[in-house]
């Protein structure tokens, strides 16, 4: 166990955290996800040592670091808006933390050059940070945080202000870099795609409270309450691109063929929103390209919606109203057809 947060409570302005507890192992990529204003940022800042909790403790290994100043914790922080020091160029931004640790200019230079190469920002080293694009600033901010080899790297919505393409690239890059630097990461996001691509542990937060902790699979397959179910309800599948048909890509997902308009190569992760899947007791003809036959293996009524899990070779979740359920005669173990358009199959990683 690397980091243990125990029963942590605090308030800061209009944000609060209420008795949060969770653990992080060495090498974990933990993602905290929740709607805006759920207290994620102050939780992160408290771990970094910027706020004093009203209650609860934080342990690093066996050491209680609750009242340790931030500079003694070995925890780096990357903010959504990067916070590159505008009074220094990119090189000095990255070297800033290193200079505190190493008293040797040559050594510092070597480390900076190395991480600049890894993050592909070598050509930017002598630029002023204010002249960089969002994606470039992002990489510099990550380089600055990572080059000091922190015990834990905290990232507050690092990809949220990037455009979709850059975001995808950054995710892949971050994943590779974290491996090379063997970093333990806690990241905040409100974007589920980050979870699928990066996390091995997920914490769901709402209104300052932790609602569920688990692996991404746990969270997506066994959401513990309606909020999480609605929040994370999308179906996530690991597939392999096997060919093209017209302008659609053909995917093989555990033996089941799916069509998507998104470009795909090799192994991909796709997401299908449950509300976009039509459930029918009969095979119907339509313009939708994806038609699967399966057996209903689970029926859960939550609030005014009914959640079905259908095994069609792949397990898919879908949602209908109680009225439709009655009309269609839905019950467990019944065979149904699942129909959804190719455009509903979104490649996310």
């Amino acid at each position: 166990m690397l980091l243990r947060v125990e029963n942590l409570s605090l308030e800061f302005g209009e944000f609060k955290v209420e008795s949060a507890s969770f653990e992080v192992e060495r090498g974990d990529y933990l993602i905290i996800i929740g709607p805006t204003g759920s207290g994620k940022t102050i939780l992160l800042e408290t771990i970094a040592g910027f706020h004093t909790p009203k209650q609860g403790r934080i342990y690093m290994g066996n050491e209680d670091i609750t009242s340790l100043p931030p500079e003694k914790r070995g925890i780096s922080m990357v903010y959504q808006d990067y916070m590159l020091f505008p009074n220094m160029n990119v090189y000095n931004n990255i070297a800033y933390g290193l200079r505190k640790k190493i008293n040797n200019d040559g050594e510092v230079r070597k480390e900076v050059k190395h991480i600049a190469k890894v993050l592909d920002i070598k050509h930017l080293l002598y630029r002023n940070p204010t002249t960089l694009s969002g994606g470039e600033q992002q990489r510099v901010a990550i380089a600055r945080a990572l080059v000091v080899k922190p015990k834990i790297l905290l990232m507050d919505e690092p990809f949220s202000s990037l455009d979709v393409k850059t975001r995808e690239k950054m995710r892949k890059l971050v994943k590779d870099v974290m491996k090379e630097y063997e970093t333990t990461v806690i990241q905040i996001t409100h974007d589920f795609e980050d979870v699928f691509v990066l996390a091995n542990k997920v914490v769901i937060m709402k209104n300052g409270k932790i609602l569920q902790i688990g692996t991404p699979d746990d969270i997506f397959r066994k959401p513990t309450n309606e909020f999480i179910a609605n929040f994370v309800s999308t179906n996530v599948l690991r597939c392999r691109a096997v060919g093209k048909k017209g302008n659609l890509s053909v995917l093989n997902c555990n033996g089941v063929t799916l069509y998507t308009p998104d470009k795909s190569h090799g192994s991909v992760i796709v997401s299908i929103r449950p509300e976009e899947i039509i459930v029918s007791p009969y095979k119907i003809f339509s313009s939708a390209r994806n038609i699967l036959k399966g057996k209903i293996i689970d029926v859960i009524r939550r609030g005014n919606l009914v959640w079905l899990t259908v095994d069609a070779g792949i397990k898919l979740r879908t949602v209908i109203t109680p009225n439709s359920m009655e009309l269609l005669g839905i019950e467990k173990n019944k065979d149904v057809y699942l129909i959804f358009k190719a455009s509903c199959v979104k490649v996310i990683g």
Binding site: E45, A48, G49, F50, P69, P70, E71, R73, I75, S76, M77, Y79, D81, M83, F85, P86, N87, Y96, G97, K100, K101, R144, A145, V148, P150
Partner: peptide, 27 residues
């Protein structure tokens, strides 16, 4: 001066006073 500049500096190993002289004052 956005406080987060100071927080980042602290997390990179600089104490309160060093952060003040190296980051806050110049900004």
């Amino acid at each position: 001066v956005n406080r987060r500049y100071e927080l980042v500096s602290r997390s990179l190993g600089y104490g309160e006073f060093e952060t003040f002289t190296k980051i806050t004052l110049p900004l």
